[in-house]
């Protein structure tokens, strides 16, 4: 993907993130405070048996974390837990600079060169760590 296009997608998701709102009590809540930086996002997930029905989030964080959360929400609502875990797995590979399934990640590919910036890797993976925890715990 072209650098400028990536930047535009990231900024669009940062300025107008999907589902930035508190959810009702029937959602699972995970906090993703990042020990290496100051990002602090709460993620709310609603499961319907094996399917992720809905995800929302609240909090303050940098552009990479917010946009990554928004892109995650866009891509993973409606997926089964297994599908979500597979997506997260591929995303993590990308962030580590390894071979990964490019087609699966869709807009998630905007972070495909973030592995070059050690200090921003945790920002991009922040929401995924939260979601993974919620899936494991559920």
């Amino acid at each position: 993907m072209d650098r400028e296009l990536k930047r535009e997608i990231i900024m669009e998701h940062y300025m107008h993130p999907k589902n930035r709102k508190r959810a009702s009590d029937d959602y699972e809540k995970v906090n993703t405070a990042n020990s290496s930086c100051i990002d602090n996002i709460d993620i709310y997930i609603k499961f319907d048996n094996n399917v992720i029905k809905d995800i929302t989030f609240e909090g303050e964080a940098c552009a990479i974390s917010i946009s990554s959360t928004s892109i995650m929400i866009k891509n993973l609502i409606g997926k089964t837990k297994e599908e979500a875990l597979e997506y997260i797995n591929e995303f993590e590979k990308m962030v580590e600079g390894q071979e990964y399934n490019v087609d699966l990640l869709k807009e998630g590919n905007v972070y495909d060169d973030i592995y070059k910036q050690g200090n921003r890797k945790t920002c991009a993976t922040l929401p995924y760590r939260g979601l993974k925890k919620a899936i494991m715990d559920n």
Binding site: C37, I38, R120
Partner: peptide
């Protein structure tokens, strides 16, 4: 603009500032 994004931006020009609480 989130403070950390400002710090990252300045870092691109080798300027070290702190973001956070």
């Amino acid at each position: 603009v989130f403070s950390q994004d400002v710090a990252y931006y300045l870092n691109k020009y080798n300027i070290c500032v702190r973001a956070g609480n």
